[in-house]
């Protein structure tokens, strides 16, 4: 095999090609002047979602806290009365079980907290699911992973884009 030595010409060509590709395919993201970008849906976030989970004081017997905050994209204003649905594989049921699902509303400061059974590792990671799926804003599904399976709380941030 002949050895190929990287020349300046190669490097310039690579750079030019990269610029062309990103420019032509729209892979670049324009800089946003007004601050808070909307939260994208996470991969696998909607798995085992059951639309219309009831608003509850607590899912099952509790012991674990799902917390979070909901803001509006752009100005970052906290959003009150936003319905957030939560589900997970816990000590009391699989993700698909109806009793593993529940919903809550955000307070005036945009935060929410919902007590639920301890999340346990399932499908390889200790993780929870959250959904914002109501008409006023674009739907967002989140799938945060716990740093440790022994954590007794999990936090999620929503930045919603008006629909």
């Amino acid at each position: 095999m002949t050895r190929h030595i990287k020349t300046r010409r190669d490097i310039l060509l690579t750079g030019a090609a990269a610029t062309l590709v990103t420019g032509a395919t729209g892979l670049t993201v324009p800089a946003r002047a007004a601050g808070v970008a909307p939260t994208p849906t996470m991969r696998g976030g909607a798995n085992n979602y059951r639309p219309g989970a009831p608003i509850v004081d607590r899912i099952g017997n509790g012991g674990f806290w799902m917390t979070g905050r909901v803001r509006r994209a752009g100005d970052g204003t906290p959003l009150e009365g936003i319905r957030i649905q939560v589900w997970a594989h816990t000590t009391e049921g699989h993700e698909r079980d109806p009793q593993s699902h529940g919903a809550t509303l955000t307070g005036a400061d945009g935060t929410f907290r919902l007590e639920m059974p301890q999340i346990v590792p399932a499908f390889g990671q200790p993780h929870g699911h959250l959904a914002y799926d109501s008409p006023e804003f674009e739907t967002v599904f989140l799938r945060p992973v716990m740093r440790s399976a022994s954590d007794s709380t999990l936090h999620a941030e929503f930045v919603l884009q008006p629909a």
């Binding site: 991969r43 696998g44 976030g45 798995n47 993700e95 499908f123």
Partner: peptide, 14 residues
């Protein structure tokens, strides 16, 4: 959990 396995097989699992 069907959706988790479908995601895995389609190489779009998180």
């Amino acid at each position: 959990s069907p959706p988790d396995v479908v995601d895995a097989l389609l190489l779009r699992s998180p």
